[in-house]
Computed example of a mutant assay.
Amino acid sequence: MSAKSTSLTLIQGDITEQAVDAVVNAANSSLLGGGGVDGAIHRRGGPEILNECRSLRAAQYGRGLPTGRAVATTAGRLPARWVIHTVGPVHSDSEDRTALLASCYTQSLQVAAGLGARTVAFPAISTGVYRWPVEDAARTAVATVRAAVAASPDAFDEIRFVVFDDRAREAYEAALAAS
């Protein structure tokens, strides 16, 4: 019997409304909320997320979560079971930080697999205030997720890319269409 393949899907919408096992948060290193996706997840998820983030800061991440790493908390009031917080890199014209961006996806999927999450929703990490060009971010995200799925084909049922606007949707459509 052949294994069911992981579905890679694209949705234009609100990541805080995704009914999945794990929602990935494009967090800042403080883990204490911020703007963009991070702020939306903390606002909609409620104080339970912030309380667990504070505990993580006190116990393990006193200096904050390093860029490219990932850690999980409850999803609070979100329609998901967990939030996986990952810190994307700030884009630089003078230094290639692509490996750090890829690590956000790889580490998040490792955390998700460890939790037993079968469905995972990702935002367009680092494309907001961290200024990563969305076309490049989409190529990196899709290539990294495809490689992770190829390495562990039975780990997930669905990995969803959730984007906010038309430009990001078009960039992810192009990345998903490319082989």
Rank of each mutant, 00 (worst) to 15 (best):
N51Y: 01
Q60C: 00
Q12P: 01
Y61A: 05
A137N: 04
A19C: 06
A3G: 12
P153I: 11
S94D: 14
T86M: 05
D93R: 15
A124S: 15
T144H: 07
R43A: 10
Y172L: 08
N51W: 00
K4A: 14
Q60T: 11
V145N: 07
A59E: 15
I15M: 07
S2T: 13
Y61K: 01
G114A: 13
A174Q: 13
T144D: 09
G116F: 13
I11H: 12
G35Q: 03
P133I: 02
V71M: 12
G36Q: 06
A75V: 02
S179C: 01
V163H: 00
R44H: 03
A72W: 06
P47D: 15
A113H: 14
G62S: 13
P123M: 10
T74V: 13
S92H: 11
I84F: 09
N51D: 14
T9F: 01
E135G: 12
A175N: 09
R69C: 08
L56G: 13
A150W: 01
L109C: 08
R160Q: 13
A75R: 07
A137F: 02
G68T: 08
S55M: 09
Y105T: 10
G39E: 10
C53A: 03
D14K: 11
R160E: 04
T140F: 02
P153T: 06
G128T: 03
M1K: 09
A3P: 01
G128Y: 08
V87L: 07
E48G: 11
A102R: 15
T9H: 02
L10Q: 10
E135L: 01
P153R: 12
S5P: 11
A80Y: 01
G13T: 08
G36A: 10
S55H: 11
A117L: 04
R146P: 07
A138M: 06
D154R: 14
A112P: 12
A178G: 09
N51I: 01
H42G: 05
T144Y: 11
A40N: 03
E173T: 06
T74W: 02
R57M: 11
D165V: 02
E17W: 00
S108D: 06
G33E: 01
F164L: 13
S103C: 04
I15G: 13
K4N: 06
A19E: 15
A27H: 07
V71Y: 12
S30K: 13
T6W: 05
F161E: 08
D38K: 04
A143E: 15
V129T: 13
A80C: 02
G68P: 03
A80N: 06
P89N: 10
V120P: 05
D21Y: 09
A112T: 11
V90K: 14
L10V: 10
T16L: 05
I84C: 10
A141C: 11
T74S: 14
Q12A: 04
R169F: 03
A148D: 06
H85Q: 11
G33N: 09
Y130G: 04
